[in-house]
Design a protein around this nucleic acid. Structure first.
Lengths: 186, 186
DNA sequence: GTCTATAAAGCGATAGAC
DNA sequence: GTCTATCGCTTTATAGAC
């Protein structure tokens, strides 16, 4: 029965890609059955709450990934420069160097925003706090650290939007590179 | 018959708000009839191409606004500092200090991106060129100017996403304020 | 636990009266 | 130029066989 958990994870990954590609509104059950290889019956057996539950679990899964791979390392870090470099590398990896959209940002812009408002806010809030506390430890004032962390989050989101709009992954790479320098500045 | 043009503009404004609120996919004809006060018959009389034509004309209308109020002033400016301040003020006004989503960015993230790819790319490309040329005239190198203009566009988009995600318009105000300083730096 | 069949509602789009 | 009625299709969701 441990297999169940593993398989669910796999389904969530596939669901995530569908939501990323078509948005919450645009991700129809037809598209979802194709992406997961599961019939509607199986899907509603796994997710009795339907599409909303699917999206909620996908968002929770994403949150878990960032908690493990981004937020926690930020919190536990001793060396700010190394930690920031690791964060940037993790972000670059996660978003496939700008090819992959941020589902949390996408949900925030759409009409599903209200449904997932708390999850969306939490995702960014915890990121910002973890990063700001690291920057504070590196010598910045409380307000400087907070403002710089805000700038980091916003830069990543903006780079993802612009890279997609202009179909130029270089935008994302350049933005991350500049961001790292800005975060490490004295 | 001049009235016709005026009324069409009004319909396009209403359409724009529906698309902004629900995205291209989420903007159903029911929502559109409610927002415009027009029945389906009238809508298809005005826009024989249906929803796609509606969105295309809304995007063209937005493009026209930016051309007139942002790009052209940027191109014609003599005083870079004044021109950048004017751009920032115009952006702040247009996006209602972060309360209003950027439809072009929203379309870029969704699955309608391919349909409107050229329009979306053009919107950002012309903005970047106009801004970069101004920065060039203010003494920056070609690559510096281009990179800084890219940063400006990406910052605005990211600020809109994050402000909406966190439901905090202050994020947008702060981002614009910081951006102005960054653009004017030597 | 997965499937097919189907329900009920909503979708974009069209026809035709006025 | 605007309306109502309606078409054909797709949507989410359910029921029941296996």
């Amino acid at each position: 029965m441990l297999k169940k958990g593993v398989e669910r994870k796999e389904v969530l990954r596939a669901l995530g890609e569908v939501f990323r590609a078509h948005g919450y509104e645009g991700a129809s059950l037809t598209l979802i059955t194709e992406a997961t290889g599961l019939g509607k019956g199986s899907l509603y057996h796994l997710f009795p709450g339907g599409k909303e539950q699917m999206a909620a679990e996908v968002l929770a899964d994403i949150d878990g990934w960032f908690e493990l791979n981004i937020y926690a390392p930020l919190r536990d870090a001793n060396d700010p420069a190394r930690a920031i470099a690791a964060m940037i590398a993790g972000v670059d990896q996660y978003f496939h160097s700008g090819d992959r959209v941020c589902l949390v940002g996408l949900v925030a812009l759409g009409s599903a925003r209200d449904t997932f408002a708390e999850t969306v806010d939490d995702y960014f809030a915890r990121w910002q706090v973890a990063l700001a506390q690291l920057l504070r430890r590196s010598g910045l004032s409380r307000s400087q650290a907070q403002r710089r962390a805000e700038d980091a989050l916003l830069t990543i989101q903006g780079a993802l939007v612009l890279a997609r709009a202009r179909n130029d992954a270089g935008i994302f790479r350049r933005a991350l590179s500049d961001l790292m320098a800005r975060l490490l500045a004295p």
